[in-house]
Design a protein around this nucleic acid. Sequence first.
DNA 1: CCTTGACTTAGAGTGCACTCTAAGAGCTAG
DNA 2: CTAGCTCTTAGAGTGCACTCTAAGTCAAGG
Lengths: 117, 117
Amino acid sequence: MKIGELSERSGLSTHTIRYYERIGLLPYADRDAGGRRDYDPSILTWIGLLHRLKATDMSINDMMKIAELRLQGDHTGPHRRAILEAHREAVRDMIVVLQDCLSILDTKIAGYAAQET
Amino acid sequence: MKIGELSERSGLSTHTIRYYERIGLLPYADRDAGGRRDYDPSILTWIGLLHRLKATDMSINDMMKIAELRLQGDHTGPHRRAILEAHREAVRDMIVVLQDCLSILDTKIAGYAAQET
DNA sequence: CCTTGACTTAGAGTGCACTCTAAGAGCTAG
DNA sequence: CTAGCTCTTAGAGTGCACTCTAAGTCAAGG
């Protein structure tokens, strides 16, 4: 798969893909005879995780930490797991905050509704 | 209340309070004899709402829209209500996304845990 | 009287995460 | 053949939301 196709299928722009490779968020891609990046579809799984981490507000720096450990091999599994577990707690906290805000929005909206009657 | 005290009680820096006033996110504060901002404690309620909206990822621009309507008077209530209702939907969506990510994190973590045994 | 610290303004600087441009080149499908 | 995608490096630009600086004013405490 060439960078253009990966861009379409991953939702990342080609610029962003090259940028991610440069900073180490994506592994250095194999090049074909013409020197062009040629991706294995399995990269999409990794990008999928990146999307999830991004959606849950993880910084690029923290994602890079995981990417780095991934490159270092399987023995870094426990370390990666620890990072993800910490992140999972952060996500749980986020959900609690959002739910709290949601109920305050409900109250606020109900207040406006009362004024309108 | 002077800006320093409001800063402490609201969690916003004095820089940020002045910035918010400049862009219209906080109403123009009354000044005392010495020309210094003098706040009524009721401003804390408004800042509280701003904090909630920020925590739920509302942009400053959108918050400014509400602030503007607020200044225009009570008759803008329905409009503000509509904005908050739309935002409430966005927050609900966010929670769904976060919960989805959470379960994927669980899976991922469980996978690492299995490898460690 | 004088220092200290809080305050004023306009505007410059910061950090994040992209996003794009330039310039010149090579491969490949139609 | 040629249009179109791709490559490289290096660096500039964008948008957001602050965050801070400079230069100056002013009231209160020692």
